[in-house]
Write a protein that binds this DNA or RNA. Sequence first.
DNA 1: TATTTAACGATAGTAATACTATTATATTGC
DNA 2: GCAATATAATAGTATTACTATCGTTAAATA
Lengths: 224, 224
Amino acid sequence: MDALIRNMEVSINPRLYLKDPQSTQLGKRIVSNGIDMISAMGVEQFNFKKLGEQIGSNESSIYRYFENKHKFLIYLCSWYWGWLELRLVQETHRITEPLECLKRGIDTLTRPVEADASYGHIDEVALHEIVVNEYSKPFLTREVDQQNREGYFEIYKRLVHRLADMIRAVNPEYPFAASLSSTVLEGSLHHFFLEQHFPSLTELEGVKNHTLFFRQLVLSAINK
Amino acid sequence: MDALIRNMEVSINPRLYLKDPQSTQLGKRIVSNGIDMISAMGVEQFNFKKLGEQIGSNESSIYRYFENKHKFLIYLCSWYWGWLELRLVQETHRITEPLECLKRGIDTLTRPVEADASYGHIDEVALHEIVVNEYSKPFLTREVDQQNREGYFEIYKRLVHRLADMIRAVNPEYPFAASLSSTVLEGSLHHFFLEQHFPSLTELEGVKNHTLFFRQLVLSAINK
DNA sequence: TATTTAACGATAGTAATACTATTATATTGC
DNA sequence: GCAATATAATAGTATTACTATCGTTAAATA
């Protein structure tokens, strides 16, 4: 089981790309340089032409991997959520005591991201920056429902459900496990954003408070 | 005092417009039709040319009121938050008991918006739709910090601080009043969005649960 | 009432974006 | 060595988000 869990990989809905970027050198360069550029300049300023120039390739080549910029962003975010899900599973699957499991889960999901050597060409710290600064853009569109039906947000939803299950394991009577789980995941990103841009709207600064706040929020809500 | 509070009006940072839309007929038509159109088609699909056609006026005339679409959106959202702040003050200023005051405050801020006859040309329900479906777009940009310095988000910040003060009034020892307040305001919008588009990620449906969830979340967090 | 002034409407134009289409040139598999 | 595939280069298109200009209309003032 352990080996199995260690060898898990992030798998992403193939509808998000035209050609799997993991399958070629160029594809990997598109993804890794795309992450760097978007985290540096923001999605609005980013486009495939600039990315092409950056990697010494061509706009049209990138369009053979990704249909458009928006799907590229969803792809990157999905990768992030998938990666976080792996960490969640890895860090909690040995823990049998539900309360301890939940605490560790919240820690994993709310603490800042550190570099992870396991995935060579992807800079998780830069990716976290993207998710914090653009977090709602994948779904705040007119096409959400359509895209949701096509499964673009499956990984994120699965992650919310995982945390919700951990909450239910501690207190099966609590009626809002999914809502609370959503609040933690969304709230955590939002608080990273607030720390950076609206410090007067939060007391959280640095790692410790961040995790403490969400832990206490959840545990008191479910009355433990 | 009561009369004073009844007569308060939403006042918006003049830097958000070139010419005060409240000062003319055309301005009011721009705002009210803009709200209708954005709530119907979303900001991405919306533009000043379409709005001009809709109100039998001209693109260039609208640009004399608002510098660009983004500031127009911030203007509308500011109006919404200002209006909500008024309601918050009106509904809580007579209550002296802090806990009761906090409960009423949370109710006001988290329950769905109903039509308000006080502001003739503005459709608050449509405006609420906009805020729910585009809520992070005003600030998820590269220009946040600049725009924050120019005071574009003052009203929203003031609202967060008001709720935080109510929390502190109930429990001065609780160290995360602002964070909790931010979580409620952001979370409430997010949950309206989830109800519409990702119902599996929340148990909240309809008014009752919505307010109940946030009430219980806050009160248990601050240990009351 | 005449005149000035401000507001508005209409048209045209621009730079950038987000692609699409086509063709040429490498690279790889057999 | 040849066919098939992947990539590069170039050009082109529709749309967007404005800006600039100018004539007309309405309002304010004298």
